[in-house]
């Protein structure tokens, strides 16, 4: 357990904007959006700390190893099958929504099946490598992508089209409302990267620095705010709900006037 743990959390935070998370959050902006975000940050941080501490007691063992060793077979086998399926579905959601995005914005002439097939093939091939290889790949992808993400953030916050009044409106009007379940569950998605530790725990390398765990709620809350509030700032409280992929449309509204690539949407989607 080491820096790779944080990479997997970061990874989950990064991909949240391309799946349904912004959509759900924006649809529920009247149902206690901001308290929901705060609540889910607190809850997920607690889960993260609990899970990380629990896995630290089992060095160099993945969840399946632990379950097999500690539990009778008739409990561990169905549990593993259940977990495997939920992972499969989680990955499937990301892949399918991403291929839909690709078809909609980049390759309109290509059948969506082809795109999904290519992605599944590439992802499957990479995932079938050794665990350590996947971790190295994860690190390289994250380190190379973060500058671009910061660039998008900077551009989106710095542009004159961002209406801070709308954001303030959305936040202040419904600040004291009890959040509903949908908001909390969608928002906790951002933090679910810690679950990958169930597999990556096999490869413990280097020392774990628990102090960095304190950064998880901070970065998580910032990411959540970005996810939910920047589309509101761009499209307005009512406008943001109408988009299917609110964030992609937001990114499309940003322009780098003097950059080589003018439309930020490409930078955003191709990451």
């Amino acid at each position: 357990m080491n820096r790779y743990f944080y990479y997997s959390i970061l990874m989950c935070m990064m991909i949240n904007t391309i799946i349904f998370v912004p959509h759900i959050l924006l649809n529920n902006q009247r149902n206690g959006l901001v308290p929901g975000l705060l609540l889910s940050t607190a809850v997920s941080t607690g889960f993260t700390v609990l899970f990380a501490n629990a896995m630290r007691t089992f060095e160099n063992q993945s969840l399946s190893d632990i379950l097999k060793a500690r539990l009778p077979r008739w409990i561990s086998a169905p549990l593993l099958i259940y977990l495997g399926y939920s992972w499969f579905i989680a990955g499937g959601i990301v892949l399918i929504s991403f291929s839909n995005l690709m078809k909609r914005y980049i390759l309109p002439d290509m059948p969506v099946q082809t795109i999904a097939f290519v992605m599944v093939a590439a992802a499957g091939w990479c995932a079938s490598q050794k665990t350590r290889t996947v971790l190295y790949l994860l690190e390289i992808v994250i380190v190379t992508n973060i500058p671009f993400i910061l660039l998008i953030l900077y551009k989106s916050i710095g542009t004159p089209f961002m209406n801070w009044y709308a954001v303030w409106d959305a936040v202040s009007d419904y600040l004291w409302r009890w959040p509903n379940m949908e908001v909390v569950s969608a928002a906790t998605y951002l933090f679910t990267g810690y679950i990958n530790l169930a597999i990556f725990n096999k490869e413990s390398e280097g020392t774990f620095r628990p102090r960095l765990l304190g950064l998880v709620p901070v970065i998580g809350l910032l990411t959540l705010m970005t996810t939910a509030l920047i589309p509101i700032g761009f499209h307005g409280e009512h406008g943001a709900i109408r988009y299917v992929n609110a964030w992609v449309s937001t990114a499309d509204s940003i322009r780098i006037e003097f950059g080589v690539v003018e439309r930020v949407i490409y930078v955003f989607l191709l990451l």
Partner: peptide, 29 residues
């Protein structure tokens, strides 16, 4: 597959590089 293909291909190349080992040492990390 256009740009999408280029990115996927690049991803695969990086993955291949990361999967290599030189005498037990990770090749790309």
């Amino acid at each position: 597959l256009g740009l999408f293909g280029a990115v996927v291909g690049l991803f695969c190349i990086v993955c291949y590089l990361a999967s290599l080992r030189s005498f037990g040492y990770p090749y790309l990390k």
